[in-house]
Simulated scan of single mutants.
Amino acid sequence: MAARRPPNRKALIRVAAAELFLERGYHNVSVADVAEALGITASALYYHYRNKQELLLWAVRDCLDSVDALVREAADLEEALRSLAAFVTRPRSVFAIWEREARNLDGSERDAIREREFEVVAHLVPLLRTARPDLGGPEAELVARAVFGVLGSRSRHRLSLSRRRDQQLMFRMARAAAHCELSAADRPAGNGPAASGSGLRIPRREQLLTAAVRLFDERGYQSVTMADIGEAAGIVASGVYRHFPSKTDLLVTAVNRGGERIRASADQALARARDPREALELLLGAHAAVTSEHRHLDGILTNERDQLPEKERTALRRFQADYQDVWVQALGAVLPGREPTELKISIHAVHAMIYFVVRSRTADQWPDLPRRLTELGMAVLVGSSSP
């Protein structure tokens, strides 16, 4: 007798696809891979979805809808945070898929997902303002986005405690972000920060590198061509090759540039510290400042590592491991006795929070954003430390 097709096969396909997209990256997954994960044929999958792009769109929508439902059904902030913490610590959670993989959708679909993301974050704001009447609208939106950044970190790494401890830690960190006391804001003079510049002509090589970094981050490395980069920099594709022999050379140069800036800012911060807590706070402030100023560089360091040649990929992994070790030492000095895995999960949460906030379309309204991210980050790292 032939096996009956499960009534929820369409949903199962989306779940399997989301897991693979988040684990390997959209461009490294084929329709055949998704079908194989489910034990079905590619033709059976095509019965439900026309192509991989449509599959990604629905996978991202599913995740956003699930998160939104948890927020909108919660009676108060506490219930929402507990529900979200349970959601992100489920086995095979794909909470972060909308933030990382939506850039692989085409323009109109990507814009629609960003609007949906904005709605989901906005739905947490009333719960925040009820629990915290001290927060104004812009501050509540900033804090809401920080909360989602913390929670989204959980599906970006494979570190884990027991399921119960994982859930408790994610709840404590999200709650600490939600209840962070923000200092008085520096309000922008107009609609955003004033433009600055020396008026000097930027070298063509730097123009190309800047354009490439932005495009790699916004669309994904594999979706960008040398012609795209040339067009963004205002030159023909052949002109790009006079400065960079290949697209890979652009990516390697950008990654090296990002690593150098992060390393230099961390070294300078730690050199100024007078005690362990100040060292942690200065390190956090330096990371927030670099990420705010170079958000696209941080994006490719976060998402494009697997596109590097093996030698450079190994070097980047080593640099990132060394950088995390600096953070573990800094946080461990403030919270002695805390096990390394918990420290690393907390550090991932703060880095993801910073990354998520600076990429918001409203981030530029805060001229003091690095300071606010430092306050939120310290609350998450230290304020959530109660066992």
Score class of each variant (00 low, 15 high):
P188M: 14
A184P: 07
N104A: 13
R187I: 09
T130Q: 06
M173P: 03
S155K: 10
G107E: 13
R110S: 08
M170T: 10
R156S: 15
A184V: 10
W98C: 08
R158A: 13
L135P: 00
R175L: 05
M170F: 11
E109A: 06
P126H: 06
F171H: 01
A184L: 09
R129T: 06
V143N: 11
R100I: 07
C180G: 01
T130V: 14
R165M: 09
E141N: 05
L135I: 00
R132Q: 07
L142C: 08
L182N: 06
F148N: 01
G137V: 02
D111G: 13
E99V: 06
A184W: 06
A177R: 02
F171K: 00
I113F: 11
A177H: 04
V125K: 01
W98E: 12
R158E: 11
F118H: 15
R156W: 04
S108N: 12
S153M: 02
G152P: 06
D134G: 03
S183H: 12
S160L: 09
P133D: 01
G149F: 04
R103Q: 10
D186F: 15
D166M: 13
R175T: 00
P188L: 10
R145M: 02
E119Y: 14
H123D: 02
A112D: 05
M170H: 15
R145K: 05
M170W: 05
H157V: 09
A122E: 03
R129V: 04
I97L: 09
P126W: 01
N104T: 04
E119N: 14
G136P: 11
H157E: 03
G152Y: 03
A140Y: 01
L169T: 03
A177D: 13
